[in-house]
């Protein structure tokens, strides 16, 4: 994966924790940018779903995040670096059904503990680094060729 030199597109965004009225803006923007480039719809869908799950996690659990979106001919990469509480037990958080969501979040249709496993399912590569009290970085890589 050393096509780093040929970046076709690079954009940065920010996500504000707790800002439910704008939640999803980054993922849907990324989705329309990928559509304009003309990637296969399955690739776009996987990227959009993985990014949206990660974006929602920032809105629900973190204070803020910087999002970097990079497209090379072979890969789509979305990195969400947040400042926030971090994840104490990543292995546990990755399990389907594990959630610390409040009832308020559940009433909004989230908090089933499906997000991180769903990111893993949709991404070709997933790297998560987290430090309690500092923040979490989620790096999603999708192979662009289907």
């Amino acid at each position: 994966m050393s096509d780093e030199g040929q970046i076709m597109l690079r954009e940065t965004f920010t996500v504000a924790g707790g800002d439910f009225s704008h939640a999803g803006r980054v993922s849907t923007t990324i989705k329309s940018m990928l559509k304009q480039i003309g990637f296969p719809s399955a690739v776009i869908r996987r990227t959009a779903i993985a990014t949206y799950e990660a974006e929602m996690n920032v809105v629900v659990y973190a204070d803020r995040a910087d999002v970097t979106f990079e497209v090379t001919p072979k890969t789509i990469r979305v990195t969400l670096a947040d400042q926030g509480q971090g994840i104490a037990d990543l292995e546990l958080a990755m399990q389907e059904g594990f959630s610390t969501a409040t009832d308020e979040i559940r009433e909004m249709g989230f908090g089933a503990g499906m997000g991180l496993p769903n990111i893993k399912r949709n991404a070709d590569e997933l790297e998560i680094n987290s430090e309690v009290g500092v923040g979490t970085t989620v790096k999603i890589t999708i192979n662009a060729g289907e």
Binding site: S21, T28, R45, M56, M108, G109, F110, N118
Partner: peptide
């Protein structure tokens, strides 16, 4: 987001903005 398939109609009782965003990203 985890099980819905692309091209479907979504029937739901959840009327917030996230229902639209979810539909958008999940095709």
């Amino acid at each position: 987001l985890a099980f819905g398939t692309a091209g479907s109609l979504l029937i739901t009782g959840l009327t917030n903005a996230q229902s639209v965003n979810t539909a958008d990203v999940a095709d």
